[in-house]
Design a protein around this nucleic acid. Structure first.
Length: 499
DNA sequence: GCGATCAGTT
DNA sequence: CACAACTGATCGC
């Protein structure tokens, strides 16, 4: 979800029908079918607090806290299948099984501070769930109980919401802003977007962070997290972590984004989509073809029929054709593509290829893009701003700015054609017929908003659910509003009826 | 002064 | 309009 975490952006510490620990309240269980569903599901939601795991797995050579990743096996190898094709941007997957750290490198040994966090955890894993980690150490500030000493009601500490916890495991996903999450000894990061890694700072000490190798590089590079905590996992490779078999799958969201597949000791399979854009080719993955998923954590960012948008390829085609048309009319046109830190690379990569021009962007983004390790992208990146293709922060793609920007390049360019790729376009038309998109023009600056989404559309979600046939679905986005949750659950029930 | 959180922006 | 994902301002220690 992008957002997933809309919830985290909410001014309220916790959605109104969730308690301080992020669990649905009793009232909610009677009034909301959403919460109701959880309690009907037969899943033990308290399991995170007291992992039923066999204590120290023998396998775990080192301190079990780090989460032992001992077994590693390429899925596609094991299944004797070719990896499904991924497009241009996909990094070449390194197949060497022994290169990944799983086999050789021990899990990150908890250091001093880490040990503190873990001690913290073991303490709270006792039957009394209400005592949050707050009191333990004096260094606790934000989540410290200032309410305890009667200090003017600081904001209540926010506990990790239940939908970020994986029942029956000591795992959480994208939960870094809650300090040490109760019962959590391994933290998964689905991808490197702020609303998911928020809370990760160089002071992180609460446990190992599992993510793709690409995401791991970004975390190390941009957040200065101690590498001891960073545990890169290869895609399509099974790892056994704390007794749970974990596999990361390409999520088709931004570079490094992964779906996370868990297979528990008892055979239950859970899939967490992180943020993703569902596609037909995703359905070819062996792990998604083996029958039902018991529990699906779903990126519901666009889980509403009003969200329709074309395939990414169509939008890219439109962008490329539009750029070519403008350049033909005015060869001294500067093409600008807006982008967040990571994501939307295929839009400007396609322009670069079609127009045979390098990609200019500032040094900090160049560093990020090179870190992907994608030769086809790296070889097109240039530090020379004479190229007619520039990538700028999305926020700066607006008329005022671009006008100034053009003036600073006026010896080389006479006009600007800019694209703002966004999942959401207000125009209903744009969702169906790209050629109906009207740009906004002011003087020599033209800006197109294009419906290029890195989240699933409503119908893509429907297709995906009907294919995966989850026994139960937990939305991870737009969950702060009860009416919304009910609506989404109604869609899920409808889609899964009779399956 | 620093990091965490809030408010504002496209 | 509303959305994802920031970015900058302010708060609190």
């Amino acid at each position: 979800m992008a957002t997933g975490d809309v919830e985290t952006d909410s001014p309220l510490p916790v959605p109104d029908d969730l308690d301080d620990n992020g669990f649905p309240t009793a009232a909610a269980t009677t009034s909301s079918s959403f919460a109701d569903d959880f309690y009907r599901s037969g899943i033990d939601w308290s399991s995170l607090q007291a992992p039923p795991q066999h204590p120290r797995e023998a396998a775990s050579g080192t301190d079990a806290k780090g989460g032992g990743s001992l077994v590693q096996r390429s899925l596609f190898q094991a299944w004797g299948i070719e990896k499904p094709p991924r497009e241009e941007a996909a990094p070449l997957v390194q197949r060497s099984l022994f290169q990944a750290w799983g086999i050789k490198k021990p899990p990150p040994p908890p250091r001093e501070e880490a040990a503190q966090g873990f001690r913290d955890r073991s303490r709270v894993s006792s039957p009394s769930p209400s005592s949050s980690s707050g009191a333990l150490s004096g260094k606790k500030r934000s989540w410290g109980g200032s309410e305890e000493n009667g200090a003017p009601a600081a904001r209540k500490p926010i506990a990790c919401p239940f939908y970020k916890k994986i029942p029956g495991t000591p795992f959480t996903v994208d939960a870094f802003r809650y300090g040490a999450a109760e019962g959590c000894s391994a933290y998964f990061l689905s991808h490197f977007h702020y609303d998911h890694y928020g809370g990760l700072t160089k002071k992180w000490c609460h446990g190992p962070i599992y993510c793709t190798a690409l995401t791991a590089r970004l975390v190390k590079m941009l957040l200065a997290i101690d590498s001891e905590y960073i545990c890169p996992l290869e895609l399509d490779t099974e790892y056994v972590i704390e007794g749970v078999t974990v596999t990361l799958l390409e999520a088709n969201h931004c570079p490094g984004a992964a779906l996370i597949h868990y297979r528990l000791r008892d055979g239950k399979t859970y899939l967490h989509t992180g943020d993703f854009r569902a596609s037909k080719s995703m359905q070819l993955h062996p792990l998604l073809q083996t029958g039902r998923i018991n529990l699906l954590y779903l990126d519901t960012t666009y889980c509403n029929p009003k969200y329709k948008f074309p395939p990414q390829e169509d939008v890219i085609d439109f962008v490329v054709r539009t750029a070519q048309r403008y350049l033909k009319k005015q060869p001294k046109t500067l093409i600008v593509v807006g982008a967040y830190s990571i994501g939307k690379e295929n839009v400007y990569l396609a322009i670069s290829q079609a127009l045979e021009v390098p990609i200019y962007t500032d040094a900090s983004r160049r560093r990020i893009l090179h870190s992907f390790g994608w030769p086809n992208l790296s070889k097109r990146i240039s530090s020379c701003n004479q190229s007619s293709l520039h990538v700028l922060p999305l926020a700066s793609v607006q008329h005022e700015n671009l006008k100034k920007y053009l003036e600073t390049h006026n010896q080389r360019f006479l006009a600007v054609l800019a694209f703002r790729p966004t999942g959401w376009t207000f125009s209903e038309a744009a969702g169906k017929e790209l050629d109906l998109i009207k740009p906004s023009s002011k003087g020599s600056v033209t800006i197109y908003g294009v419906p290029y989404s890195e989240h699933s559309s409503f119908t893509e979600l429907e297709d995906f659910l009907k294919f995966v046939k989850p026994q139960k679905v937990i939305p991870t986005v737009n969950v702060g509003n009860a009416a919304n949750r009910d609506k989404m659950q109604a869609y899920f029930r409808e889609w899964l009826k009779g399956l």
